[in-house]
Amino acid sequence: MSSDLVPPTYPKVPTWRRSAALGTDLFVVWLLSSLLSFNGVLRFFLFILLWLSLRVFLVAKNQGQSLGRWAFDQKVIDFRYSRTPGILELSRREGVMGICVYLATLGLSGLVSGNAGILLFWIPISVDCGLALFDTTRNPQTFHDRLGRTIIVGTQRGYSLDIKIRRWVDKIKKDMK
């Protein structure tokens, strides 16, 4: 492995925060694509178009942050140059992730209709994200991170939604005593 593929050390983002940011972005894209209530291929293309708009074009213009990453104080960077990735890197990265996430949403909708076999649609996202769980480096990378040569790092710029929720929960617990 060449030395340009080994990322330097950056502030690590816990897996649960990365998942929460992904879930936030997924919810926004899913909601918007569901409101238009197209079916089949047209819904897939609308989903991917919205996904790429939120996770590629917004990220390129917003210092590496999508809505979900902004809410949870993280950003995506090109670790080779310590900067926001370009459109090409983001498109490679999010093209794979968009398809995986779309298949996962199909898997969830299949459960509603009673077809448990549709859970097979969760395999691509499980494999993609599972790589980060078994990556022993300081900044674990998923398959789509490796493909785009990017990593997710913590940042001071954001809404700190996780901290605000924790404060609300602590306040509620205190008020209940």
Rank of each mutant, 00 (worst) to 15 (best):
K164R: 15
A132Q: 07
G114L: 11
L90A: 00
D135V: 01
S82Y: 00
G130V: 10
E94V: 10
N115E: 14
L88P: 00
F134M: 12
R93Y: 08
D128E: 10
T150W: 10
E89I: 03
R69Q: 11
I151K: 09
L108M: 15
E94W: 03
I163N: 10
T137I: 00
L90Q: 02
G114I: 12
L133N: 15
D162R: 03
D145V: 13
F121A: 15
Y102D: 04
S126T: 15
G130C: 05
T105E: 06
W70S: 03
Y102R: 05
V153N: 03
R157T: 11
V76T: 10
D162H: 14
Q74P: 00
R149P: 01
I125F: 07
L90F: 13
I87H: 05
G86T: 04
L131H: 11
W70I: 04
Y81R: 14
L103E: 01
F121C: 14
R80D: 04
P85E: 04
D162I: 06
P85V: 05
T105A: 13
I151E: 08
T136W: 02
I118Y: 07
Q141W: 01
L120E: 05
G117Q: 14
T84R: 03
T142F: 05
Q63C: 03
R149H: 15
S109R: 13
T142Q: 02
L147Y: 14
G86R: 03
C100R: 12
I87K: 04
D135C: 04
L67Q: 02
R80T: 13
V153A: 08
L106M: 11
L131N: 08
T155L: 12
G130Q: 08
W70E: 00
Q74H: 00
S82P: 02
V101P: 04
G148F: 09
L88G: 00
L131T: 12
T136F: 04
S126V: 14
N115A: 15
T155I: 11
G158V: 09
I151D: 01
W122G: 12
D73T: 08
A132Y: 02
P124I: 13
A132D: 04
G148C: 06
P124V: 12
R149G: 10
Q156T: 14
W122V: 05
G95S: 09
G98M: 09
N62F: 11
M97Y: 09
G110N: 08
G148E: 03
R138Y: 13
F143C: 09
S91G: 09
V76C: 06
I163H: 10
D145L: 06
V153G: 09
S66T: 03
Y159M: 11
L108I: 15
Y159V: 15
Q156E: 14
V101I: 08
E94I: 07
N139P: 01
V127W: 09
Y102G: 05
I87Y: 11
L67M: 03
T137W: 01
Q63E: 12
E94N: 14
A104L: 14
N139F: 00
